[in-house]
Nucleic acid binder design. Structure first.
Lengths: 331, 331
DNA sequence: GTGAAAGCGCTAACAT
DNA sequence: ATGTTAGCGCTTTCAC
């Protein structure tokens, strides 16, 4: 593969000139430019990004660290985010290095260290559950960082989140409006921001309708299919008339149980799930859901990151994207 | 960030020695080693991968190019592959650069060129529909390549595919065994290997049961929800008693139509879909599907790639992973 | 058993 | 308006 030196030689100019032609970084007379372009073409020259990175300390690459659990449907959420990020990045000539913390705090540290070694220009991270923010201090390198989806306690810096509270409020309100007073709530592990926010929305709605909060209607467990299934079973025994599942995997688990028991939805029990995918429309009845703007989340995050990479010094921003309650036949 | 030079100075050795200690690439006396490790620790030294890449022409990074269509459920399939790849790579100290061709042949070329500029050590590519293999000749760099999912015509090189033909054969056979003789078939665009293979399986099964092939039972269209919906409608008018949808998006579209028409599944019409996700179990009745081993596909592909990167010269291999027909209530 | 030094391909400060 | 050249941080050949 041809180097800048060979191009310079062929065009009878210095490597500096070639470099400046490529990068548009200082004036070059038109005829000279022409010669250089010609030479580049003839040699099928492509700049070596690695050398460029080494010299300029800029890699045109950003890292994305997501917490995927193998075999978990939530993959879809983060992958949709990755997709949004990749799109914006491509438009701006950047690359994406994808990495996975497996929802494991050890692995997360390791992967960040790997990134630190690579000259990434920025990092988007969806933190592992329960991570509190000692990020900045020792762990992170000297690139900008945008945290998404979950906010580690006390993290100072740019964050892009989904307004889970509001959307859950809307969803639960719609149930209350229809007269439901015993609304079961299936939650993933509490203590992480996303779970807590959602439960907050549930409580807000109850308060708005002056319905007393009852502990027995709240069931918490690991965010798994199995657990969603079991908690739905427990809630039925509590005599709820409606069910809200606060994440996608548990929604599936709960639906699986209801299906098996041949519970009539929405007559015997109304159901609202979390996250919207095509197949939600295909269930019978079509499932009402809270839809998170995952693709937009990715886009927003990387847009903010790019701003920082360009040197923006404005104060740290917390962007809150609205989620949408979509009412279908199940509620 | 400390450099190898500073480490060398602090340890009173040459940079060569430090390098060799790090890489275990020639003998270093134990006491010297000790000094070097000590210095590295004190300086919190981490090797600069970019410099290393430049010098050694090895980046410990591989590229993945997938054809995602925005908003398409098939994302899930490729993302699951990405996930498998990432896992194997991490175990081997490699990184993954993720890129998207958007199922667009122009973009695919561009992205490959970007890769060529980056010192990737290898590439896994799920080619855009209809790509024929002029890959090697001009486009690809001098890194090993593994092609997955679809095989471009005449491509010579390592390929990892799914045995779609066999699985489709199994699925359609099960319908025939139950007495169905008018089996509608919904296909994505024909002419790409995955579609053709699947249709081949359908035909194989008919032949096996001596059922004549009828053109009117085969409906082809773009692999979209909308199209799946419409083709299902057309097939019902042809009087089919069973329906096979040859990809996941169209499965959703078809199901949506059947749901809307309140067609009783499987009594009025039996249905088999493509690709298995949790929510297939949750539909009523649970959907019978052909399940592709997507995660394994990613793993296998990158394992083969790693072998090549280590210099394996064995003949090009075509790996065919078995897909599984899973029978549930819908058929 | 270890060191000196060239050089990977590029950018950018300094010259002219 | 363009050229010279010193490095970025590392690996690796050659030398001792």
């Amino acid at each position: 593969m041809a180097s800048i030196k060979e191009v310079a030689k062929k065009a009878n100019v210095s490597t500096a000139t070639v470099s400046h032609v490529i990068n548009g970084t200082r004036f070059v007379a038109d005829p000279t430019k022409e010669k250089v372009f010609q030479a580049m073409k003839e040699l099928d020259y492509r700049p070596n990004m690695v050398a460029r990175s080494l010299r300029s300390r800029k890699s045109y690459t950003i890292g994305l660290l997501v917490p995927l659990v193998a075999d978990d449907t939530s993959n879809f959420f983060f992958m949709s985010i990755a997709n949004g990020i990749e799109q914006v990045l491509k438009e701006n000539g950047y690359n994406l290095i994808l990495s996975n913390s497996n929802e494991n705090i050890e692995t997360e540290r390791e992967q960040i260290e790997v990134f630190n070694t690579q000259f990434i220009d920025g990092l988007v991270i969806a933190p592992v559950n329960g991570m509190d923010a000692n990020y900045e201090k020792d762990l992170l390198g000297d690139y900008p960082v945008v945290v998404i989806d979950r906010k580690p306690s006390e993290f100072q810096g740019d964050v892009v989140l989904v307004n889970n509270r509001k959307a859950t409020y809307d969803a639960v309100s719609s149930l209350l409006k229809k007269g439901h007073r015993s609304i079961g709530y299936i939650s993933g592990a509490l203590g992480i921001t996303t779970s807590d926010e959602r439960l907050g929305g549930y409580k807000d709605a109850l308060k708005e309708y002056s319905v007393p909060f009852e502990h027995r209607f709240i069931k918490e467990g690991p965010a798994t299919f199995r657990s969603g299934y079991e908690l739905a079973s427990k809630l039925l025994k509590e005599g709820v008339t409606a069910l809200f599942a606060a994440n996608n995997v548990m929604t599936m688990g709960a639906m699986s149980f209801l299906q098996e028991q041949k519970v009539n939805i929405p007559n015997e029990i109304a159901v609202i799930g979390y996250d919207d995918y095509d197949w939600m429309k295909v269930m019978s009845p079509p499932l009402s859901v809270v839809k998170q703007p995952s693709f937009e989340l990715g886009k927003k995050a990387v847009e903010q990151l790019l701003k920082r990479m360009e040197g923006s010094l404005e104060e740290s921003k917390e962007v809150l994207l609205e989620a949408e309650f979509i009412e279908r036949g199940s509620s």
